[in-house]
């Protein structure tokens, strides 16, 4: 679990760290959207250049990102293999039963691979440079329009920030209980599948028990500080949109325009 970096936050003071979380949040989704505009080597090159520049700006070591992707590599390769083997092409290089290999399918596989990398890098960048609290603020403000359809935005936002607040604590608790049970002779992750599944009972039951007791204590503590419900509360953390955030939008617009030109202008 230590190796996977998706969802972590690394403190820093770079340009990316200081961007408005709302902008970063929407920007990430927007970027995942425009990745599907890419259809040639040039377009992927452009996107890679853009992602690398963003990573560079975040001040986080590139090798760290690459190592973070490593646990996911089998999933990615599996998908890429499926894509390669099952895409029919005109110039068949090799075929057997339902599998076939062609230049087109190889290129397609490469595209899919790059698409995966781009999406993972970019979304990891969001979580690495944004604190969980900022992220939940961003989600709350992005969800605000949903109030029109009677969606309980404030409650959901509170739920989110409480959930995020307790992720590290529950992780610590998990490690602690795991260690305690290990000291009592449990072997996590060894033996037959059934044995492995059973070895998680001494971990999960204490975790559930402590989660419920945390929830109960927290609810009482919140009520005793005057909390009565989601509405009519003020906000202490205010998000501020700055000039740098406008620059980010400009960067996205430029990339989009370049992508469209490369896709529709050059080839046809």
């Amino acid at each position: 679990m230590d190796k996977l970096i998706v969802g972590r936050y690394i403190p820093g003071n770079s340009i990316i760290h200081n961007l408005d979380p709302r902008g970063k949040f929407l920007g990430t989704f927007y970027f995942i959207g425009i990745i599907f505009l890419a259809n040639s080597w040039y377009t992927y090159l452009l996107l890679f250049a853009f992602v690398l520049m963003s990573l560079k700006l975040s001040g986080i070591n590139l090798s760290y990102f690459i190592r973070g992707v490593r646990p996911l590599i089998w999933l990615i390769l599996f998908t890429v293999m499926l894509q390669i083997l099952f895409t029919p092409g005109e110039q068949v290089l090799w075929s057997w039963w339902i599998f076939s290999l062609s230049w087109q399918s190889l290129i397609n596989g490469a595209y899919i691979f790059m698409r995966f990398m781009l999406i993972i890098f970019f979304s990891t960048l969001l979580t690495l440079t944004t604190t969980p609290v900022e992220l939940s603020d961003a989600i709350e403000s992005v969800m605000k329009p949903l109030k029109w359809i009677k969606f309980p935005v404030t409650q959901v936002a509170l739920m989110l920030s409480i959930a995020l607040r307790f992720v590290p604590q529950l992780m610590d608790q998990t490690t602690k209980i795991m260690n305690a049970q290990r000291a009592r002779g449990v072997d996590f992750g060894s033996g037959s599948i059934m044995k492995r599944i059973k070895s998680f009972i001494p971990l999960l039951i204490p975790l559930f028990v402590s989660s419920f007791s945390i929830a109960y204590d927290l609810a009482v503590a919140m009520e005793s500080r005057g909390y009565q419900g989601g509405e009519n509360r003020t906000k202490y953390r205010q998000l501020a949109w700055q000039r740098i955030d406008n620059l980010m939008i400009v960067a996205f617009v430029i990339v989009t325009i370049l992508l469209i030109i490369l896709r529709f202008g050059v080839n046809r």
């Binding site: 209980i177 260690n179 305690a180 049970q181 000291a183 009592r184 002779g185 039951i205 204490p206 028990v209």
Partner: peptide, 16 residues
């Protein structure tokens, strides 16, 4: 681990 017994802080959280 059998020879070295360990009582963690707040060990009651390991009961299941």
């Amino acid at each position: 681990r059998q020879q070295v017994g360990m009582v963690f802080q707040f060990p009651e959280s390991q009961l299941f």
